[in-house]
Design a protein around this nucleic acid. Structure first.
Lengths: 192, 192
DNA sequence: GTTAAACCCTACTAGATCACTCTGGTTTAA
DNA sequence: TTAAACCAGAGTGATCTAGTAGGGTTTAAC
């Protein structure tokens, strides 16, 4: 049930770009992202390239160039990123919504394993398709500000002062049931 | 987020052994399991060996030998099987309960990705650790009987007549919150 | 006591994937 | 002109995947 390093790094970088945007930095260089997250630069460079091809980020070439999110963080779900990098969320092909594949079992309709794995895939997708980068950025910044940790990517000396735009939650999709978990618990209050 | 073929085959075989026990068959041969599930015999043989080493099944050697579950199906959770075959359920090491591994990120406490992935791991474990083979066997048999499909592994000619023991649900653990999904919906009624 | 049917054990392997590294481009601001 | 950045593609060792191959050992039945 693993997320690959590539997928992990991609999400880390995108979340960082989301934080950067929130804090007033329009462009971040690969080298800075790589250093902050302790990712091999050249490897991350490849990943950023892929994220650009897929329309998640845009780049500015040349000196003082860098990357930024191609659209608001609220419009990029975590699930869409994971699917691009690591493929379908479903544990087995016969329960995938985006890449269904007939399995070898003789009777898919009466396959208990399939029902179980469908539940698993729905649980995973229920989280990853519900939350956007903006949600992750929001909980991260919230926790950091509460603990008075200096925010990353701040140009200004006073963390969190410059260009603190209000993050808006990604629109809740009516076809998804509510989930409970750390993230959703973090939203109503600051209890954690 | 994949389950390997090996993991899939292992679960299929175990579920079949659960069905067989429920239907009155004490021993099933690898060849029969392999044929039913369309798994390469020699590959499944290996897997059964592993399942034996791990204490999920016991074998009877010699002619008319075979395999059976080493303990009641209700005492074998799906999660325990997946962990043995495919490793930890958590998408990334830093949220694994059974195989925690420090990740490369600079500040684990304020890592939004980690919080998100912890939710995912809890969602997965919430399902796979909750349900036992007995649960999967039960929904399978229920669906089959409802649709009047002949039950597999029946020695008797009248499906479902011989030795229909009552399956007992695995004890609900109080530390796990209820989940919704196909399986739990299937239990209270026959609606699907 | 032979035989056939079953499990048991070990080795091997082609191909894919993973997690990078290496080598050089090309673009752009100063 | 130069330096800092992105762009592009090839290569690579290790590991994993999904098996295959070839036997050996045990047991029930004849």
């Amino acid at each position: 049930m693993k997320l690959s390093k590539k997928g992990e790094y991609a999400l880390r970088a995108l979340i960082d770009l989301g934080i950067a945007a929130e804090v007033g930095r329009s462009l971040v260089q690969v080298s800075e992202l790589a250093e902050k997250e302790r990712i091999p630069v050249k490897f991350l460079e490849q990943i950023m390239q892929l994220l650009k091809e897929e329309g998640f980020v845009v780049s500015q070439r040349g000196k003082f160039g860098g990357y930024r999110l191609a659209r608001p963080a609220a419009k990029i779900t975590v699930g869409s990123v994971v699917r691009i990098i690591d493929g379908p969320l479903a544990p087995i092909g016969c329960v995938s919504h985006t890449a269904y594949e007939k399995c070898s079992c003789p009777d898919e309709v009466h396959c208990g394993l399939r029902m179980l794995m469908l539940d698993v895939r729905n649980a995973i997708a229920g989280i990853l398709d519900r939350y956007s980068l903006a949600d992750v950025v929001e909980v991260t910044l919230r926790k950091m500000r509460r603990d008075e940790v200096p925010l990353p990517f701040s140009d200004s000396l006073v963390p969190g002062r410059a260009a603190r735009r209000i993050t808006f939650r990604s629109p809740l999709r009516s076809d998804l049931k509510p989930v409970e978990g750390i993230l959703s618990n973090l939203f109503p209050d600051y209890s954690i």
